[in-house]
Every structure is written in C-alpha cells, then in structure tokens.
C-alpha cells in the first residue's frame, strides 16, 4: 500500500507568538512538526505495519520545513519530499492544496493520504478537504478511528468525531483522511530513527518539477494586530459557609452581568 502523509513546520506550542511591525513573529522559539500531524504520521505507520507498503511524508515550505520531515522520518516514515519554491512564499490553503495534490499525483499510485486535522499556526483546517477536492478523491475529515481499510477491495470505513457524537462513514480508496487526537497517541521518534533521519538527503521539488500551475492566493491578510490587552481585576469571594460563599459569588456574577 502506498501512503502519503502531509505535514507542516510550525512554531513550537510554547512559543509566544506576537505581531511586530505588521509581521507575525515568535522570537527564537524553535520550529517543530505541527503536533496534529504527528497523529497523522502515527496513523500512517500503523496502516503500513498492518498492510505493508511504504509511507512517504511531504511538506510544502522553506528549507526549515525539512526538520518536520526529519521528525516524521525519525518516527519511522520511509521517504520524505519537500516541495519548495520562492513563488509559494505567500501560499494560502488553496495554493498549498494544489501543490500537494500535484505532488501526490507525481508520487503516483497513492492509496491514502493522511493529514492532521489542522495546523496550529493558521488554524484554518481546510487543507485536507481542499486537497481531496483538487484530487477528486473522497474526503474523510476529523477521523477518530479507522475501523477498516482494505487495499484489495479499495475500501475504507472510519468513524468521524462530530459535535453530536461519532459518525460512521465508508468510502473508496484512494482517499484523503484527516485525523484527530482520538486516533491514538503518536510514538516517540526512536534514537536510531533520529540518526537515520539526520543522515537522510531529502529531495526538494520545485513547482516546475511537480508540474502544476497554481492559482493566485485567494486569502489575504491585510492587517495583523495583537489582541487588545484585557484588564483583569481579581476578587476573592469568601463567606462563612460554602453555601454563603456560593450565594455571594452568584450575586456577583449577576451583578456583573456575566450571565
């Protein structure tokens, strides 16, 4: 089975992201693989262990995105590809999905593509569905469990996490699947995996090599600003008994029109 995982390099979750001079910055904080994408890598590796085949991890981004790819290699993915091109500097999710779709087609004979449910930087969460749309493949988003995947009959059944509960969905392969946390804890990179990944030469494909004509970005970010600072006043509510304290607190909440 041929599996592709799409990953993104993002600022570390502990980074303090701010806007300075109209630009988003996170200081010296390191870039890491998007945490949601680790779940996608884990899912891909489990499927590879069950059905055989190979897992290729791809990313669209600059040279520094190689670190996200190396993390995925260290977890156990067999191959990595970076699609990098100066023209992609301001790519939005539409452009990214066009590039990913073309790269997936260039890899060829792919059975299933995994994404994390969203990237923690932009938090848009639509790249998986857009990539499926460009490819013309079924899109199975917010998947919490793969109940059946049969490369022979080219079918897949999953459970999706939706607001009302779980939704059971079946589809045809090839398909694009985005996964959520319930899919299973990602494994740690092994030490040998890190060693191999650090030695790996990751091929870089340009837009021309991928063979795609991308659209102009349709999303613009005309203004970026930090959220306004909120004044916080702390008041400790006390009373004789828990009931009195609760009553005082309830009165305060009503008085302040919180409810």
């Amino acid at each position: 089975m041929k599996i592709v995982v799409c990953v993104k390099q993002v600022p570390d979750t502990a980074a303090k992201v701010v806007v300075e001079n109209g630009q988003v910055t996170w200081g010296d904080a390191p870039l890491v693989i998007n945490p949601w994408d680790e779940y996608a890598v884990e899912t891909a590796l489990l499927q590879e262990e069950e059905h055989g085949g190979e897992v290729t991890v791809i990313s669209v981004g600059g040279e520094d995105a190689k670190e996200a790819l190396k993390h995925a290699l260290a977890m156990g993915c067999g191959n990595a590809i970076l699609v990098s091109d100066p023209s992609l500097k301001n790519a939005d999710s539409l452009v990214t999905s066009q590039v990913l779709a073309a790269a997936i087609q260039k890899i060829g004979d792919v059975d299933v593509v995994f994404f994390g449910k969203q990237a923690i930087d932009g938090d848009v969460g639509v790249t998986a569905a857009q990539t499926a749309r460009v490819l013309g493949w079924p899109s199975l988003t917010l998947v919490s469990e793969i109940t059946e995947l049969d490369p022979g009959s080219k079918t897949i059944s999953v459970e999706r996490s939706v607001e009302e509960g779980r939704q059971v969905v079946s589809g045809q392969l090839p398909a694009v699947v985005s996964v959520v946390k319930d899919i299973g804890e990602p494994r740690y990179p092994s030490f040998m995996g890190i060693r191999k990944a650090s030695r790996a030469e990751i091929p870089m494909w340009s837009i021309a090599e991928v063979g795609v004509e991308v659209s102009e970005p349709v999303v613009e970010w005309p203004d970026l600003f930090n959220p306004p600072k909120q004044e916080v006043v702390t008041e400790i509510v006390s009373g004789g008994s828990p009931q009195e304290t609760a009553e005082t607190l309830a009165e305060k909440i009503i008085e302040e029109k919180v409810l």
Partner: peptide, 16 residues
Amino acid sequence: FSPEQEQIRRTIQEIC
C-alpha cells in the same frame, strides 16, 4: 548544537 543533538534533547523532553 547540531540539529540531531537538538532533536535528541527535544525527544527526551517529550518522553519525560
């Protein structure tokens, strides 16, 4: 530190 050494440190932090 080399990227590999940084990755070792990060992974141990993650495990811990």
